[in-house]
């Protein structure tokens, strides 16, 4: 294929789109909707996963020893567990000291008995998402009394993320299939209306792949238009939503990802859908055999 062939193919594709203006516009619109869904889903999912990760990283496990068991005796067995990254001993008197520094020693002494706070241990895990599985193991260590962990919220958020992933994936598959069918049908109609062009190309010695290229290029151009439009929508709407989210959860502002990250994927997805639609339609109508 020469450079001139590519030039002619692009020119013919442009003319083909103009001739089939309504069907082309409908295809671009549906492809754009699909790509907005796809990009939006990727972006929201990435952000939820980020926030869930952030919360999970902040989860700490607090262990209180049984009565008459000194907290420091539990440090060694806890550190021996491979999942444990760090163990910190928190003495009850240390807590009183911290409160005294804030409220004044006299007030604290009057308000609280000397043994108001028991000694405890703070455990940080190498992989925080394993906390749920590890709790039982920690409770089984001799001398361990209570084990308290704040995993609930992070778990709920992760469950929401998984739910969104599943729903979003299903929706994206449905929209992708619809968009693919639309692209395929548009190209099939284009092929039918250009039967004479195809015949002429065959007569002068253009092979099936050469003939198919025209329709594949046309479908990819439609996909590219849709991608550009979808990217513009995602940029405009996405940035606005992100600003709202930053206002809503300022502690996670640094963790939020910009919608621009998914634009690259969206820009590739449109032409890819076109390639599939144009390729399948032209294979069905023109074939691949150069007999």
């Amino acid at each position: 294929m020469t450079l001139w062939t590519i030039y002619y193919r692009l020119r013919d594709a442009r003319q083909g789109i103009a001739r089939n203006a309504l069907a082309s516009a409908a295809t671009v619109f549906l492809l754009m909707l699909t790509l907005v869904m796809f990009g939006g889903f990727l972006w929201v999912n990435a952000n939820i996963t980020q926030v869930a990760d952030l919360l999970q990283r902040q989860v700490q496990i607090r262990i209180f020893p049984q009565d008459a068991v000194p907290a420091r005796d539990l440090v060694a067995p806890l550190r021996a567990l491979p999942e444990v990254a760090d163990v910190e001993l928190l003495s009850g008197s240390g807590v009183v000291d911290k409160l005294s520094a804030v409220f004044g020693q006299d007030i604290v002494r009057q308000a609280l008995p000397p043994d108001a706070f028991a000694d405890s241990l703070s455990v940080r895990l190498a992989r925080p998402e394993q906390a749920g599985r590890l709790i039982g193991q920690l409770r089984a260590i001799p001398g361990v009394g209570d084990v308290i962990w704040g995993q609930g919220f992070a778990d709920s958020l992760l469950q929401i993320a998984v739910g969104l992933q599943r729903t979003g994936t299903a929706l994206v598959i449905v929209f992708f299939t619809a968009a693919l069918l639309m692209s395929l049908t548009t190209m099939h109609l284009a092929i039918l209306t250009r039967e004479v062009e195809i015949q002429i190309q065959r007569w002068v010695g253009v092979g099936p792949w050469g003939i198919r290229t025209q329709f594949i290029v046309e479908a990819m151009l439609l996909g590219l238009f849709a991608s550009v439009l979808a990217s513009a929508v995602l940029l405009y709407v996405g940035e606005a939503i992100q600003q709202r989210m930053v206002a809503l959860i300022p502690f996670a502002a640094k963790e939020l990802r910009s919608p621009t990250l998914v634009i690259g994927l969206v820009l590739m997805a449109g032409p890819l859908l076109g390639l599939l639609g144009g390729g399948l339609a032209s294979q069905r109508a023109i074939g691949v055999s150069d007999r």
Partner: peptide, 20 residues
């Protein structure tokens, strides 16, 4: 021989002109 390669050396004319 691939059909396309063969047809590059052939000019084909029909009764119905089949113009664009």
């Amino acid at each position: 021989v691939p059909g396309s390669a063969l047809r590059r050396s052939i000019g084909i004319i029909f009764q119905n002109f089949r113009l664009l």
